[in-house]
Amino acid sequence: RDLEAFAERFKQRRIKLGVTQADVGSALANLKIPGVGSLSQSTICRFESLTLSHNNMIALKPILQAWLEEAE
């Protein structure tokens, strides 16, 4: 599925960039996405391991996609 593929790709890119889950969570606040502050390390972990609810995964995907584009 698309979400699973993105979560795996996100994790691989994050590791390759040398960024921790906690770093991603705090960096999201710097993107200044309306309504989005920082996220906890555990939320990033649960996204990568696909243990969040489907609706949460869908909500987080564009936010994490934006971070990934900014980081690369």
Rank of each mutant, 00 (worst) to 15 (best):
R1C: 04
R1W: 10
R1I: 08
D2E: 11
D2A: 08
D2M: 06
D2R: 05
D2C: 04
L3V: 09
L3N: 05
L3H: 06
L3F: 15
L3C: 02
L3W: 07
E4R: 10
E4L: 09
E4G: 06
E4M: 13
E4K: 10
E4I: 13
E4A: 12
E4V: 11
E4N: 09
A5C: 06
A5G: 07
A7Q: 00
A7W: 02
E8H: 13
E8G: 10
E8I: 13
E8V: 10
E8C: 06
E8A: 08
E8K: 13
E8M: 10
E8P: 01
E8W: 08
R9I: 06
R9W: 10
R9L: 15
R9T: 14
R9Y: 12
F10T: 02
F10R: 01
F10G: 00
F10E: 02
K11S: 05
K11W: 02
K11L: 03
Q12F: 07
Q12I: 12
R13Y: 02
R13A: 14
R14V: 00
R14F: 00
R14Y: 03
R14H: 01
R14C: 01
I15E: 08
I15P: 03
K16F: 12
K16C: 10
K16Y: 11
L17H: 00
L17C: 02
L17W: 03
L17I: 13
G18Q: 04
G18F: 01
G18T: 00
G18K: 04
G18M: 02
V19R: 14
V19M: 14
V19D: 03
V19Q: 13
V19E: 04
V19L: 13
T20A: 08
T20Y: 00
T20W: 02
Q21N: 06
Q21S: 10
Q21Y: 09
Q21M: 05
Q21L: 13
A22C: 02
A22S: 11
A22M: 08
A22I: 05
A22E: 12
A22V: 06
A22N: 08
A22G: 12
D23N: 10
D23K: 15
D23W: 04
D23G: 10
D23E: 12
V24L: 09
V24K: 01
V24A: 12
V24T: 00
G25K: 07
G25W: 10
G25D: 04
G25T: 15
G25F: 04
S26A: 15
S26I: 07
S26V: 08
S26M: 12
S26C: 13
S26Y: 12
S26K: 09
A27H: 09
A27S: 10
A27Y: 13
A27F: 10
A27R: 09
A27V: 07
L28A: 03
L28P: 00
L28Q: 00
L28C: 11
L28D: 03
A29T: 11
N30L: 07
N30M: 04
N30I: 02
N30F: 01
N30Q: 12
N30D: 12
N30E: 04
L31E: 10
L31P: 05
L31K: 13
L31R: 11
K32S: 11
K32M: 08
K32W: 09
K32R: 11
K32T: 10
K32F: 06
I33M: 09
I33Q: 05
I33Y: 10
P34C: 02
P34Y: 04
G35W: 04
G35K: 05
G35R: 09
G35Q: 04
G35T: 06
V36L: 14
G37R: 11
G37M: 09
G37P: 08
G37S: 14
G37I: 03
G37T: 09
G37K: 08
G37W: 02
S38W: 08
S38V: 09
L39C: 09
L39K: 10
L39M: 13
L39E: 03
L39A: 05
S40P: 09
S40F: 02
S40T: 15
Q41C: 06
Q41A: 14
Q41T: 15
Q41M: 10
Q41D: 12
Q41E: 15
Q41Y: 06
S42V: 10
S42H: 15
S42Y: 03
S42K: 14
S42D: 15
S42C: 06
T43R: 03
T43P: 02
T43Q: 04
T43V: 13
T43E: 03
T43G: 01
T43W: 07
I44E: 03
I44V: 09
I44G: 00
I44S: 00
C45W: 05
C45H: 14
C45T: 09
C45L: 09
C45P: 05
C45Q: 15
R46Q: 15
R46T: 04
R46G: 11
R46S: 15
R46D: 15
F47M: 01
F47R: 01
F47V: 00
F47D: 01
F47S: 00
F47C: 08
F47H: 01
E48C: 00
E48V: 00
E48D: 01
E48F: 00
E48A: 01
S49K: 15
S49V: 01
S49A: 12
S49D: 11
S49P: 04
S49W: 04
L50K: 10
L50S: 14
L50M: 13
L50R: 11
T51N: 04
T51H: 08
L52C: 01
L52A: 01
L52R: 01
L52H: 02
L52N: 00
S53N: 03
S53T: 12
S53P: 15
S53Y: 03
S53K: 02
S53R: 06
H54E: 07
H54K: 04
H54L: 12
H54C: 05
H54T: 14
N55V: 13
N55D: 13
N55S: 14
N56K: 14
N56H: 15
N56V: 15
N56R: 10
N56W: 12
N56S: 15
M57C: 07
I58C: 05
I58Q: 14
A59P: 02
A59F: 04
A59D: 15
A59H: 07
L60T: 05
L60Y: 11
L60N: 02
L60W: 02
L60P: 00
L60R: 03
K61F: 05
K61M: 14
K61G: 04
K61A: 09
P62T: 04
P62F: 02
P62V: 02
P62A: 02
P62R: 02
I63Y: 06
I63A: 12
I63P: 06
I63S: 08
I63F: 15
L64A: 01
L64S: 02
L64R: 00
L64K: 01
Q65H: 06
Q65S: 13
Q65C: 10
Q65D: 09
A66E: 13
A66T: 11
A66P: 04
A66H: 09
W67R: 02
L68C: 03
L68R: 01
L68W: 03
E69N: 08
E69A: 10
E69D: 06
E69H: 04
E70N: 02
E70G: 06
E70V: 09
E70F: 03
A71W: 12
A71I: 11
A71M: 05
A71T: 10
A71P: 02
E72A: 03
E72Y: 08
E72V: 05
